[in-house]
């Protein structure tokens, strides 16, 4: 917050004037933003750099650096027969989770924006999956769906939907399905609240004007409300893409016991390479690829959608 007045003063009409103001303010601002920059360096830039360094090294199974390896690790990554399937899974995972989350959240935000008795309670209830630890939520689902002692499995058998318990978390497609449901479940609170905040900034007079002009609810929503949500949607989608793409705990718990690499996304694959194959160098190279993909997605998104531009 302290950096705000200096870095982002009120938009001035003359670019040149503003520029001078900013560079004058910089020395004064440094003591305030210094600690943050330091933190960013220590927990973001340095580890990322170290990861890139590791990806070009030959590291033994017990973790000893045995000299440079050039781009051998990357050659191995790109010739890996498992890579296409893993990338396909990753794309499906991100696209399905993010679109379901945003669609459901749009509906939910609209609902929470209407006054009704008990609204505060409902709003608080929506926060719960957000407040609970992801690992905990996922573990509840995992044990609930266990075929030997899972309560959800027992329930499905009792009401006659299943003849006998089914290993939802033990087969590739059902397990990915369950993971998607859990991911949507834990992503909704943030998304819904971001959109709700956006909805609340839609001016009443615009809605009234639309009403006066005879626009129906659908017309009003798509022509007035949705365009106003652009900023909020942009934030929600971008943050969700990054979060979902990099998600490890949900997939690790739900699909972790499935053998082979049919159910892996890039993230869980990296983890397996690290844990089972003990290839720090290869895992680093995969992480660099992972990192590059995220940057490309975000850059493409910003370029194509221009999310920050006001309509």
């Amino acid at each position: 917050m302290s950096a705000q007045p200096v870095l982002a003063g009120p938009p001035a009409s003359h670019g040149r004037k503003r520029r001078r103001q900013n560079s004058d303010g910089l020395p004064a601002a440094l003591p305030w933003i210094g600690p943050v920059l330091l933190l960013i360096f220590a927990i973001v830039i340095f580890p990322a750099g170290f990861m890139i360094f590791n990806s070009t090294r030959d590291i033994s199974q017990s973790g000893i650096d045995q000299g440079t390896a050039g781009f051998v690790n990357f050659a191995e990554v790109f010739s890996d027969p498992n890579l296409p399937r893993v990338l396909l899974n990753t794309v499906v995972w991100v696209v399905v989770v993010v679109s379901l989350t945003v669609l459901i959240s749009l509906v939910l935000a609209q609902f929470l924006n209407k006054p009704f008795p008990g609204r505060t309670l409902v709003r608080m209830a929506v926060v719960v999956p957000w407040a609970a630890s992801v690992v905990m939520t996922t573990t509840v689902f995992y044990y609930g769906l266990d075929s030997n002692y899972g309560i959800m499995n027992t329930f499905l058998v009792d009401i006659g939907i299943l003849d006998s318990p089914y290993g939802f978390t033990k087969n590739v497609f059902p397990a990915l399905g369950v993971a998607i449901i859990v991911a949507v479940f834990v992503s909704i609170p943030f998304t819904a609240y971001t959109l709700l905040a956006g909805l609340q900034s839609v001016p009443e007079d615009a809605l009234e004007a639309a009403k006066m002009d005879g626009a129906g609810p659908f017309r009003t929503y798509f022509s007035i409300v949705l365009p106003q949500l652009r900023g909020a949607l942009a934030v929600a989608v971008l943050i969700n893409i990054i979060n979902v793409f990099n998600n490890l705990p949900i997939l690790r718990i739900i699909t972790g016991s499935i053998p082979g690499y049919q159910a892996d996304t890039l993230m869980t694959y990296i983890f397996k390479v690290l844990q089972f194959d003990r290839r720090v160098d290869l895992a680093s190279a995969l992480s660099v690829v992972n990192f590059a993909i995220v940057i490309v997605i975000v850059a493409a998104y910003v370029k194509i959608v221009k999310p920050m531009k006001e309509a």
Binding site: T120, Y193, L196, S201, P203, A209, S223, E310, A311
Partner: peptide, 25 residues
């Protein structure tokens, strides 16, 4: 598009300041 759309987000902050928790967001 409707002219109302151009109203920047910030200007609405005060008008809705009574709305509870969501304001933080």
């Amino acid at each position: 598009m409707d002219h109302a759309i151009i109203i920047p987000l910030r200007m609405n902050n005060n008008a809705h300041s009574k709305r509870n928790t969501v304001n933080l967001l």
